[in-house]
Each structure stands twice: as structure tokens, then as C-alpha cells.
Design a binder for these strands. Structure first.
Lengths: 252, 252
DNA sequence: TCTTGACTCCTACGTTACGTCATACTTTAT
DNA sequence: ATAAAGTATGACGTAACGTAGGAGTCAAGA
């Protein structure tokens, strides 16, 4: 004979749950002491096991009660039904995942008019920047990296990129030279270096001016991350480059 | 400006839902008439669209409220989170399906000690029955049918079979010669004919005596479908055969 | 023996997203 | 003018407990 506390620890449920199951007649204690304490024996524990099993399978407690008080074949029928129901649920969730993924993609595409971050564009900027300083082995690295990526991976990178801008948008109240902002710039640079090419201060600077250049890219960044984010980011990048390489800007 | 009724029809939701959304501040009407009637304009309808979209994705209304009142990037982050959450749910449900399927199998196997319905056993009975009347082309049909089935298909047939016995178990209060019971016998015969071999009255009769023969098969049937079902089914089959071919029994 | 702390009881409200009355008022159609 | 249809508010019900409160119970130490 175990008390509610002991049973609750054994079964990994709360005492309240035992009270509740008693109150709805799903699991009555084997006996009660004169003081009204509930006591459960092994058989009751077995029934509780069954209850928890069916509960795990998302059966409503009402149904569990019926199932446990009915013959074997009813249980199997119930199980089959539940399997069907779970399969339907799974299908539904799969549809939801597709829907949500689609919406996110629409949102991302619409807000940043995806071409703006299309590899080829960045490619061009990289080329231009590289040309002014000569072609290096790093450019080949970039080509390899970008050619091996799937459409899906590109999209994920675009999203990550937008999230970095979203972070800048949250820092608008800070000064561009603030440590937190400068760290974000460093993060942006690291991100570009990892996924595109070795992002030198010169390239970074060039990109910064592109962000704030007033084109659709500027608009998209501001629409997504908050008005003024593009300009703020550009300013932060200028600060970063000034302290990074001695103050020269690659744009003139 | 549309009234609650019009909006509800347009959006496919209830008037109560509009009341509720107003009460929790999720969607306030554009204005209210002097009599207190709610009126919604196009913008409100747009917001409602968004609400229903996020609701479809199983966002809690509280979260939807926050999301709609926050900038774009928050929405995308929320979407990503929700996608993760939905993926977890999907995984969970897949586990549940496996669990339920496993339990059902255990139940079926344990209750009917699956060998009893193993094709080979029925095979033997079929052979014996056939031998007394000579080998016919139907036997080859049976061999082909049973050899081409997968383990899974066999199990499904076993379950279907048990469900037929469960049906007999529900008819215990009827007389074996009752029309409903006799129809069940016909169903059993059709089932065997479809999945195993052309089930003549002789074979059917033989199987009936096997069910009630007192072995493990009898016990399993009774345990699963209710005490006395095996004997009841056998009696019903005798009745069926008596009216079917003029009264002779194939067993002596 | 008294007290303390751990344990138990029951009552009752909070949770989510509405459905379902019940009652009373307004608008529209005849 | 009157009936039908629409609207508003308020309150209770749902599933499966969580949480809080107040009070009684039990075993053990001082």
C-alpha cells in the first residue's frame, strides 16, 4: 500500500493528478484510511500504468476510462482508431510546416527582394573590390563556396543575413561607435568571411556604402529591420574600418 | 463597413469569435454605432486575415497579438521558432504512432499467439480438407496468394480476422441461426475466400470445429472476443453449412 | 508531551479559445 | 405596428490539471 506521494514519485506524476483521477472515477484508491488518506496497491499501480500509456498516446481521459473498463478487442479497435487519428495529425502538421516555411520565404523574398542578396550581386561587388587590389586566392575560395551551395542553403544565408540587420535595428539607440555595435560589425564581417570570401576592411567598407546607397537594398533593409538601420549600419562600418586599418576608406 | 455577421461569413468564423477577439484586444472594431454595434473596415479585415493565418499555424492568440504589434523581423523569427516547434511536434507524433503500432502488435500477438493464425496452419487444414476431395486449381491460387504477402500484410489479415471474431463476440446474445449471425458467417467465408482460398462449406466446417476444438486457438479467441465466442462461432458455422449444402457435415 | 516539519485533505479559482444558452435591445422587412 | 433577424452583454461549460489556501494528520526529536 502506497500513499499518494509515493505513487506520484513512482509514476512521475503529481499528487494533484491522483486526486483528479480519483475525482473523475478513473483511478480510485484501493482503500482510504480513517483520516481520508488514499492508499494504492499493486493492482491500482498496474491500472495507472495503463492509464499513463493511453494518455501518452493522447487519448482523452474519458475514453481511457471506457477503454479500461471494456474487453480486449475494444482496446485494439481504439488503438487502431487512434493510430489513424495520429496519422491525420501528422499530415496536418506537415502541411502547417510547409505553409509556415512558404510564408517565411514569401516574407523574406518580399522584404529583401531577394536579388539584392543574390550571390551574383555580391559577386560583382567582390570582383570590383578585388580588382582594385588585384585578384587573390581568396576569390577562388569564394567561387567554390558559392557554387557548391544549394538554393535552400542560399535562402538560409539570406535569412541569417537579415537577422544580422535585425540586430542592428535593435541597436539604433546606441551610438555607432558603441562596443555592442562594433561587435555586431565584427560579427557581420565574420559571417561574410565564413560564407562568402575573406572580407577585408576594404570590402566591408564597400558593402557598407552599398547598404546605405539609397537603392532598393537600402529600402528593404529599412523595411525589415526598422527605418534608418541601413544608414546606421553603414556608419557603424565606417567607424569599424577607421579603427581597423588606420582610417582609409576604400570608396572615394 | 461590415457588421459582425458579414465579417463572420467572409472569414468563416463565428460572431462569438469576433466578440472574443474584441474582448481580449486582439481585433477591435474600427468603430461602434451608438447602439454598440461593431463595425469593421477593410484594414480590420486585413488584420483578421493575419490573425487567422497565424492561428492556423497554431500560434496562441497572445503571441499573435504581440507578433502583429511588432516589426517584420519579429514575425519572421516567430515563424522560424514555430516551424521548429511544429517539427518537434511532428517528431513526437511519429514516435507515438510507432508506439501505438507496437502496442497493438504486442496485444494481437499475445492474445492470439500469432502462430494459431499462421498461414502454415491454415495451409495444413486446407491441404487436409482438399485431400479428402482431391486437389483442385484453387489450391494453387492459395499458394500464390500467401507466398506473395509480406509479414506486414499477414499481420493485418490477422487483425482483420480477430475483428471478425470480435463481431461474433458481440452477437453472443443472439441464436446461432439468427440472420445477423448467419450473415457474419457468410462474411467470414468471403474473407477466407478472398485472402486464402476458395472456402467451400466443407472447409468452412472444418475450420469451425478447429476454432472450438479446445486448443490454444479456442482459448485465444475467447480471451480476445469474449468467453464462449469460439464455441458460438462453431455452432453458427454448423447452422450455416446445414442450410448451405443439404445438411451433411464434413467432419464425422 | 510538545512541537516541528513533512504529508495529507478539500475547496476553489486560473488556464485556452471559444460554444452555448439566456435575456434584452436594435434594425429591417412586411 | 409587428414579427423576424441581428446584436450586445453576461455567465457557465469545456480538458486536464496547476496553484494557492486553510486545516487536519503523522512520525520523530527535544
Amino acid at each position: 500500500m502506497k500513499t499518494v506521494h509515493e505513487v506520484s514519485k513512482l509514476a512521475g506524476i503529481s499528487v494533484r493528478t491522483l486526486h483528479y483521477y480519483d475525482s473523475i472515477g478513473l483511478l480510485s484508491p484501493t482503500e482510504t484510511t480513517e483520516a481520508g488518506y488514499r492508499l494504492y496497491d499493486e493492482e491500482a499501480l498496474g491500472r495507472l500504468q495503463c492509464i499513463l500509456l493511453f494518455r501518452e498516446l493522447e487519448f482523452p481521459l474519458k475514453d481511457i476510462k471506457e477503454i479500461l473498463d471494456s474487453p480486449n478487442f475494444e482496446r485494439n479497435k481504439a488503438l487502431e482508431q487512434q493510430i489513424e487519428l495520429l496519422k491525420l495529425k501528422k499530415e496536418h502538421i506537415e502541411n502547417l510546416i510547409d505553409l509556415a516555411t512558404g510564408i517565411r520565404m514569401i516574407g523574406v523574398k518580399k522584404l529583401m527582394s531577394f536579388e539584392a542578396f543574390d550571390t551574383r550581386k555580391i559577386d560583382e561587388y567582390a570582383k570590383q573590390a578585388k580588382e582594385s587590389y588585384g585578384t587573390t586566392p581568396a576569390y577562388k575560395e569564394f567561387e567554390e563556396k558559392s557554387k557548391n551551395r544549394s538554393k535552400e542553403q542560399e535562402q538560409k544565408l539570406g535569412i541569417d543575413m537579415m537577422n544580422i540587420f535585425a540586430d542592428f535595428g535593435k541597436l539604433l539607440e546606441h551610438a555607432p561607435e558603441d562596443a555592442v555595435v562594433q561587435e555586431k560589425v565584427a560579427e557581420l564581417r565574420a559571417f561574410l568571411t565564413e560564407h562568402y570570401y575573406n572580407c577585408t576592411p576594404e570590402i566591408l567598407s564597400s558593402l557598407g556604402e552599398m547598404y546605405a546607397g539609397g537603392g532598393s537594398m537600402t529600402d528593404n533593409i529599412n523595411a525589415y529591420a526598422g527605418e534608418g538601420t541601413a544608414e546606421f549600419t553603414a556608419q557603424a562600418i565606417r567607424e569599424y574600418c577607421a579603427h581597423c586599418t588606420g582610417g582609409q576608406h576604400s570608396l572615394e
